[in-house]
Design a binder for these strands. Structure first.
Length: 247
DNA sequence: GTTGTTACCTGTACGC
DNA sequence: TGCGTACAGGTAACAA
């Protein structure tokens, strides 16, 4: 399922191929990402916006599959497929993308925020009982982190997903910040994680899934201490962690 | 206002 | 072989 690193990978590939080309009478002047959404910005100020949700793919110049919901044809003959097996994803053309409610409700980008500001986000919520994993998944709190990377970040930081936010010490918050940076950048470098059917715009699989330490590793020995990785359901989501290393 | 739960949707894996 | 069922999860809507 595409999260920040997967969406960023797709965005970079699409930008390289499609910026400057025309879709209908509109020219694409840039392609951006915000949270898990991709924006094709047109020369008239409007934008074509995509949210890939769980199972969407944006694939360049390949034949349609049975999951192809839409084919975008560009002026130079390039073809972009919008594939989605579970029909959760969406795309729409908006006149003013900055004003979209989906954009206005987003928290800061995890790769564009300083450690100081990240810690401040937590201080604003220091009386809250909400669990750290639930908070990391909240797009209003911080944009782009999903179930895979929330589990991986908390493992790397040695923090239990069940910890109430109010119980976190400053050093632990700083650790979560630095692991978030490290893991997201590494995952982008690897082209994201291929779980289920994620593919890049070139139709390639992401390689970061080979580096997962806890996600979907239930029962396997912990990478650090050999204790079996535990799986629980938290907020309706599968949550994987090491009960020994993560406190 | 905050936090937790459910519905949406359908391919895949599994058991019988 | 074929059927039924559980499971996966981003987000919005709803409940507590």
């Amino acid at each position: 399922m595409p999260e920040l690193p997967e969406v960023e990978t797709i965005k970079r590939q699409l930008a390289k191929e499609l910026v400057g080309k025309k879709l209908g009478k509109k020219k694409i002047i840039s392609i951006d990402r915000r949270g898990k959404m991709i924006f094709f910005n047109f020369d008239d100020g409007s934008a074509l916006v995509f949210h890939l949700k769980l199972t969407c793919q944006l694939i360049l110049n390949q034949p349609p599959s049975r999951f192809t919901r839409k084919v975008f044809n560009f002026d130079d003959g390039s073809i972009l497929l919008f594939n989605d097996s579970r029909r959760f994803g969406w795309y729409k053309i908006v006149k003013n993308p900055v004003e979209m409610k989906e954009v206005k409700g987003l928290g800061p980008e995890p790769l564009n925020i300083s450690q100081k500001d990240f810690c401040r986000l937590f201080k604003n919520r220091n009386k809250r009982k909400i669990k750290i994993k639930t908070l990391l998944l909240s797009q209003k709190f911080i944009a782009g982190i999903g179930n895979i990377y929330a589990d991986e970040i908390l493992f790397a930081a040695g923090v239990s997903p069940l910890r109430p936010v109010s119980s976190l010490r400053e050093q632990e918050i700083k650790n979560i910040y630095s692991q978030t940076q490290k893991i997201l950048l590494k995952a982008i470098d690897k082209g994201g994680s291929s779980v289920e059917n994620y593919l890049t715009a070139k139709g390639e699989k992401g390689k970061y899934s080979q580096l997962h330490k806890v996600y979907q590793k239930t029962g396997l020995p912990c990478w650090k201490c050999q204790a079996p990785i535990k799986r629980i359901v938290l907020g309706g989501r599968g949550t994987h962690f090491c009960p020994v290393c993560q406190n």
